[in-house]
Amino acid sequence: MKCAIGRVDGLEATPLPAVFADHDCRNNRLAWLGIGADGFLDAARVAIERHGADRVALVVGTSTASIGATEEAYRHLDAGRFPAHLRNPLLHTPHSLGLFLEAALRTRGPCLTVATACSSSAKIFAKAERLIRLGLADAAILAGVDTLCGSVLFGFNSLELISPEACRPFDAARRGISVGEAAGFALLEREGAASAPRLLGYGESSDAYHMSTPHPQGLGARMALVDALARAGLAPGDVDYINLHGTATVKNDAVEAALVADVFPPGTRASSTKGWTGHTLGAAGILETVVTLLAMERDLVPGMLNSTTPDPLCGPQLAFANETRAIRVALSNSFGFGGNNCTLVFGNPRTH
């Protein structure tokens, strides 16, 4: 198997602090690295102190969790059982990320894991909004973390979705995805700082058309998009920028390009940033949310790295090169296997 991957260096040589030794695995190491970036850990602890540990929810999105640790345990079976040093039940569970972060942050509110493939860490924004709106929490710490493992690499390869070179979203000669890994964090509060971007709405759908192929007319993606705009009280013409799911597979990009061309006016700008990051699976939603918010902050529509020749199905909305443009309202699309779709709507604090 020949493919381009994005791998975070140094995780193998950087164990978790000794107090978290029972949670030590590659996925949780990446989570610990991510939560310490840009002062987020300090901000999270301040929020927990302000609201109270039992009023802060922890909502995590991941598709692989610590499956790499489970793969290792299977490779070392002893008389049909995991060897004693690899038998840790805190790791061999889809909830390992949430359990680790709950221990690290000492939150006591709802702790939920969302695992809907590549839409996982987009859907956590919707889940957190509902928890806050229903009075079950006053704030939510959101985490999306996925690391590379054999199941992912060999699984995508078996589906013939892996590109042998760096991916090229919406390019006429695209050949598939490049797999990456990432950790992203966000803090969602009922009343945030005036300078903070606003979550204006979200839309979700589950069309269940096929386990690994999007609906040919983009039914599920359209439902999520329409739902998001309706919840935000916006029309397509109000949207300045869309961060597309844009995996660089033949079918996904064709369906999404057709949907954007059909729904949005020519002046709306849209791009996929997976050429820069690779497809980070369960972490893609929150990673691309961060990219979208940075684009709003910097008045920059990011272009599509590696993509040079637009597929004929692409409408005038797609931006292949970086563009300077004020962004008041932005969307972020995340579509997962099994028809699990989510669109998020954000407002620029300078205009909302």
Rank of each mutant, 00 (worst) to 15 (best):
T343W: 10
A65F: 03
S272W: 09
F337L: 11
L153N: 11
H23W: 12
M211I: 13
G52R: 08
G218L: 00
A232N: 02
L41H: 14
A258Y: 06
N348L: 04
G6Q: 12
E72I: 15
L234A: 03
R29W: 02
F82N: 03
L259M: 04
H92Y: 03
S212N: 13
I67A: 02
H51Q: 05
P316I: 00
A122H: 05
A319E: 05
H352G: 14
D238N: 08
G39V: 07
V179P: 07
A261N: 10
S158K: 11
R106W: 01
R190F: 04
A193Q: 15
Q217E: 15
L161M: 15
N243Y: 07
A21K: 07
D299M: 11
H352R: 13
Y241E: 04
M211H: 05
D299V: 04
A104G: 08
H92I: 03
T14V: 09
V250Q: 14
L287G: 11
C167I: 01
L148Y: 08
A330Q: 09
L136K: 15
E129T: 13
V60I: 13
V179N: 12
T309L: 06
F82E: 02
A115K: 05
H352A: 11
A140R: 04
A326E: 14
G80H: 00
T268K: 05
E165H: 07
I5Y: 14
R269A: 12
A4I: 13
R175E: 10
G275C: 01
R29I: 00
V301N: 02
L134H: 15
L344S: 00
L281F: 10
A43Q: 08
N322C: 15
N157L: 08
P302W: 13
V19K: 09
L86M: 10
R81M: 11
S163M: 02
I5W: 12
S120K: 06
A261S: 13
A18P: 03
H245K: 09
L331V: 12
I177Y: 03
C342F: 10
M1K: 12
L159A: 12
P316C: 03
L11E: 07
A196N: 04
P265D: 06
A122G: 11
R130S: 11
E102T: 08
P310S: 00
L225H: 05
R26F: 05
V301R: 04
A326K: 11
V290I: 08
T64P: 09
R108G: 15
A182R: 10
G275Y: 02
